[in-house]
């Protein structure tokens, strides 16, 4: 690491900004998506009415087809930044199996240490996983928004009804991530601060 450890913020301002724009965009997508789902549920349940965004199907679609641009722009900016800045290589590279097993075991015993500015194996897997899930969600979304114009993509995803099912399934995956992520933040409240303001990263070795 070139920069002096103590001076580097745990999260650069660009990551913090894109994180919160992403939270807003994904929130719009999920809550309006629940309202859209409720118009024709493919599983034997409805999302509670009060969780929906948009008021009715047309409103929910207006939110969904508006927020998708924000999510797309934010996600694209994040991907470009992630590759160009070394953020992905440094922070989200897949951990070794041994490191993942060790950190996972520690996490399950609530003994996984958290050091500001450093990503343990569990975080690497979760964050890289949710980024991949959002990319997949954009693709399945395109497939069900434009099953004729992007017919090749819809075909690749098993046809319109199946792609719609995948779109719903990935939403559950992202929602599960959000629950886990917010729970972990609640256990380590200082991480919330470090995602809002510049908090110095901890040194490589020290705790």
């Amino acid at each position: 690491m070139k920069r002096q450890d103590g001076r580097r913020p745990a999260h650069p301002w660009a990551v913090r900004l894109m994180h919160w724009i992403g939270v807003y965009a994904m929130g719009c997508m999920i809550f309006s998506g629940w309202e859209i789902y409720n118009a024709s549920p493919s599983l034997p349940f409805l999302f509670p009415r009060w969780t929906g965004l948009g008021g009715w199907l047309g409103g929910a679609l207006a939110w969904h087809l508006s927020a998708m641009w924000l999510l797309f722009a934010d996600g694209l900016a994040y991907l470009i930044y992630g590759f160009a800045s070394g953020h992905f290589r440094r922070d989200l590279a897949p951990p070794r199996a041994a490191a993942l097993a060790r950190d996972m075991a520690a996490a399950l015993r609530f003994r996984l240490p958290h050091r500001a500015g450093h990503y343990n194996a569990v975080q690497r897997v979760l964050y890289a996983g949710v980024v991949l899930a959002i990319i997949a969600q954009v693709l399945t979304g395109l497939a069900i928004w434009k099953p004729v114009q992007f017919g090749w993509l819809t075909g690749l995803l098993g046809g319109y009804p199946f792609a719609r099912g995948i779109h719903l399934a990935i939403m559950f995956g992202i929602a599960a991530f959000v629950v886990l992520h917010v729970t972990l933040v609640a256990i380590h409240p200082s991480t919330l601060k470090s995602m809002i303001v510049a908090v110095p990263a901890e040194r490589e070795e020290g705790r």
């Binding site: 999920i30 009415r49 009060w50 965004l53 948009g54 008021g55 009715w56 409103g59």
Partner: peptide, 18 residues
């Protein structure tokens, strides 16, 4: 009748928080 306007009755958790 319920559908008039995008946001009538949209004051839900999602709506309020966002």
């Amino acid at each position: 009748l319920r559908r008039r306007g995008f946001l009538r009755r949209a004051l839900s958790l999602g709506g309020l928080s966002l």
